[in-house]
Computed example of a mutant assay.
Amino acid sequence: MSEEFIPNSEIYSAPPGSPTPTQPSREPIHISIIGSATGTDLVIKILHRLGFAEARAWSKLQNDPNTGRPMRVLTKWLRY
């Protein structure tokens, strides 16, 4: 797995009044898959096999607000 991404479960917050944390900056990256329910599930399974993300990390099937087509979303955290 790429070192640029870190798990969503890691929290980098310092207690109030503490010095600036030495942890790297993070940015959420949202990845959307839009298509049929079957197609989105297939892509998620392929990405899981490649080690990109756990299948359960993706959102439940929902409708894309722009097209109305089925979609699923994943948030990965980019470290820089």
Rank of each mutant, 00 (worst) to 15 (best):
R26I: 02
I46K: 04
G68Y: 15
A55C: 03
K45F: 06
I33N: 14
E3L: 10
D64P: 06
S25K: 04
R79Y: 03
F52K: 00
H30Q: 15
P15E: 14
G17C: 07
S9V: 02
P24M: 06
T40K: 12
T22C: 11
M1K: 07
K45Y: 07
A57N: 10
F52N: 01
F5E: 05
V43M: 09
I29D: 11
R72Y: 05
T20D: 12
K60N: 13
S13P: 06
R56P: 03
S36P: 07
F5L: 02
G68K: 14
S25I: 01
W77S: 01
I11G: 08
L74V: 00
Y12V: 01
L42A: 05
S32Y: 15
P7L: 04
T38W: 11
W58T: 00
M1Q: 06
G51D: 05
R72H: 09
E27L: 08
P19W: 15
E54C: 04
P16H: 04
S13V: 02
G51E: 10
T38C: 06
G35R: 08
T38R: 11
T22L: 14
D41Q: 03
S9I: 01
M71Q: 15
E4T: 00
I46C: 12
L50T: 01
F5N: 05
F52P: 05
F52I: 00
L50D: 14
A14E: 11
R49I: 02
G51I: 01
S18W: 15
W77K: 03
D64W: 15
A57Y: 06
Y12M: 11
I29M: 15
K45D: 05
P15Y: 14
H48V: 00
T75N: 11
V73M: 15
E54D: 11
N8W: 10
L50W: 08
S32Q: 12
A57M: 09
I29R: 14
G68Q: 12
S36E: 09
W58I: 00
P15S: 12
A53F: 05
